[in-house]
């Protein structure tokens, strides 16, 4: 809110004053620059190995999905046997869906008849 009160001309004038003031510049801006320049020998060894250890490329969608879905594949259904009522394959400990629907149909027709 306060920034809006200043006109653009005023802010430019303040910037010019800041640049022209040598004491402010030398203390805040150039001092760190001179520090880094004094120890380039120490940094250059680890510069390529550690400090820039960042992925070179974005991981593709395919790569990401393969990684995240690893070990989560659907399991084979092995608990199967044959239905004693109709001889078709059904899951163990579960009623045969064909027989169940057949019997329900019979009940429905018996009710309407």
């Amino acid at each position: 809110m306060a920034a809006r009160l200043f006109s653009p001309a005023a802010s430019i004038a303040r910037w010019a004053q800041f640049v022209q003031n040598p004491s402010v510049l030398s203390q805040t801006l150039f001092q760190p620059a001179t520090l880094t320049l004094t120890i380039p020998g120490l940094l250059s060894d680890i510069w390529d190995s550690i400090l820039r250890a960042v992925p070179k490329k974005k991981t593709s969608h395919m790569k990401k999905r393969h990684r995240q879905m690893a070990g989560k594949a659907l399991k084979d259904v092995k608990n199967l046997n044959t239905c004693p009522g109709c001889g078709q394959i059904k899951r163990a400990h579960v009623l045969c869906p064909h027989c169940v629907s057949d019997i329900k149909k019979q009940w429905a027709t018996a009710k309407t008849a």
């Binding site: 004693p84 009522g85 001889g87 009623l95 045969c96 027989c99 169940v100 019997i103 019979q106």
Partner: peptide, 13 residues
């Protein structure tokens, strides 16, 4: 349902 399923199983047998 079990009565009907058993009847089916026996009939098929």
């Amino acid at each position: 349902m079990r009565f009907n399923m058993t009847a089916r199983a026996v009939a098929r047998q």
